[in-house]
């Protein structure tokens, strides 16, 4: 009797651990801080609270990162959103969102590139990686205005 209970319990344990493994897909990457590992770290620290763990956003408030051209499309536009923030009345996949996104210009080029590569290749998204040099290129024309602790973009085609 006792052995039956133990056997059933072990079976449950195994099924639990298998279940856990399939749910929490471990990121298996080399020991060095790869773009994926770093991208996920940056996502958890700076993006998750608004865009949520599954990248699905919050209805009416924070837009999803899944299947939208804002994420999958033009990399320059995406990089600018992160550097400058975003608070425009636009439709994203037919819905509107009200919350302001702050600027993340204090993040390093590599961190921005890694987190953008991460969101472009997770949550069901399949788009190419963003390289730190691409972020540098966009950040290039951004200057620090002397009077305010604020970054602005020199007027250029947006």
């Amino acid at each position: 009797m006792k052995s039956t209970i133990i056997f059933l319990s072990m079976l449950a344990f195994i099924s639990v651990s298998v279940f856990a493994q399939t749910v929490h897909k471990p990121v298996t990457k080399p020991a060095t801080v790869s773009p994926v590992v770093n991208g996920k770290k940056i996502y958890l620290q700076y993006c998750l609270s608004c865009h949520q763990a599954d990248g699905g956003g919050v209805q009416n408030m924070n837009p999803p990162l899944i299947g939208t051209q804002y994420v999958l499309g033009d990399k320059a536009r995406l990089i600018k959103i992160v550097l400058k923030g975003f608070n425009d009345a636009v439709e994203i996949n037919g819905q509107t969102y009200t919350n302001a996104m702050p600027a993340f210009n204090y993040l390093k080029d590599k961190d921005i590139a890694d987190v953008l590569s991460y969101i472009r290749s997770h949550f069901g998204n399949k788009a190419s990686a963003v390289k730190p040099a691409e972020v540098s290129l966009i950040r290039g024309p951004i200057v620090k205005t002397p009077n305010k602790k604020k970054y602005t973009v020199r007027s250029k085609n947006t």
Partner: peptide, 16 residues
């Protein structure tokens, strides 16, 4: 071991 069995049984019940 017996304690472990009880915990496992609880886990099984939760799963169900």
């Amino acid at each position: 071991m017996y304690k472990k069995a009880i915990i496992s049984s609880i886990v099984s019940l939760l799963l169900i």
